[in-house]
Design a binder for these strands. Sequence first.
DNA 1: GCCTTTTCTGGAATCGTTCCAGTAAGGGGT
DNA 2: ACCCCTTACTGGAACGATTCCAGAAAAGGC
Lengths: 162, 162
Amino acid sequence: MTTASTDDSTLLRERGLRVTGVRLGVLRALDGHQHSTADDLVRAVRADLGTVSVQAVYDCLHALTAAGLLRRMEPAGHPARYERRVGDNHHHVVCRGCGAVADVDCTVGAAPCLTPRDTHGFTVDLAEVTFWGLCPTCASEPTADPVPAAGPSGTTHRVGTP
Amino acid sequence: MTTASTDDSTLLRERGLRVTGVRLGVLRALDGHQHSTADDLVRAVRADLGTVSVQAVYDCLHALTAAGLLRRMEPAGHPARYERRVGDNHHHVVCRGCGAVADVDCTVGAAPCLTPRDTHGFTVDLAEVTFWGLCPTCASEPTADPVPAAGPSGTTHRVGTP
DNA sequence: GCCTTTTCTGGAATCGTTCCAGTAAGGGGT
DNA sequence: ACCCCTTACTGGAACGATTCCAGAAAAGGC
């Protein structure tokens, strides 16, 4: 683990960021558990370092995200999640039941439909794709539906049987 | 406008929903101003009907969304927005500056990259595409950047000059 | 090793949204 | 046309995720 920490230290310094316990802790926690929420990370870092304030973690997440070391994603109706995979073309599947997130690699390199035709004068710099569905665990549940299924409604791109 | 209201009444009844002032007011407000937030709608309906509680509007939005008369979209870092365009394949551009939303029609019918290959066991039913950028107004602003630019960070699909 | 800058602490505040219990209104059945 | 049951609306309090604030502590260039 010392190796990973040392790498992270270098990484932080390279981006002009100070090396602190909280930052190393957050990065280490994300290595073990990708797509963690801020709350997950507070708990993880506390288990690791003893005591950390909520703000320290939020500040840290902002700093790391701004530095390009972390990617932030915020599925509708769920708290934001953070991941270390940055700088590559990948998307996400989000579970409507529990909010779990998994990575989805891009099937095509060029992404034809991700170049919009008419953007109403907007200068577009980023295209984000989110798939919605159910994770294996929630799908196998006895359809007890206490939560009214989060995520967007209405037809966007129906996937599967047409 | 009486025509529109009458149509909306029929629409509501067809879906088994009662016809109420708030519901007609919300639908009418959305006709005039697509992609409104709940707050926008509270104000619009109040200007129209006099007095409405916040809950009435939220309840109404839930009912109409559940009935498939409204589509809800929630851009990361911005309050949810509602629109009447349902049941067609269209996506959205969101302004990082002010959160403004515009519709983007799908360039290709088949949406090749919206059929993920490996979904890690998730049963995917919907693919959502969001473009991020700046609206004409925010783009022409003197780069005074008080708000740290909302929306996802890190590279997803860089659009434009590579 | 000192001193400035940056980060961390703890607590209070914000924002969008939801929960609650009670009142009011829609509309099917007679 | 009326009644009654269901559903919608009111107002206020609560919620969770996140941010703001001012002061204390620590990082690291000199």
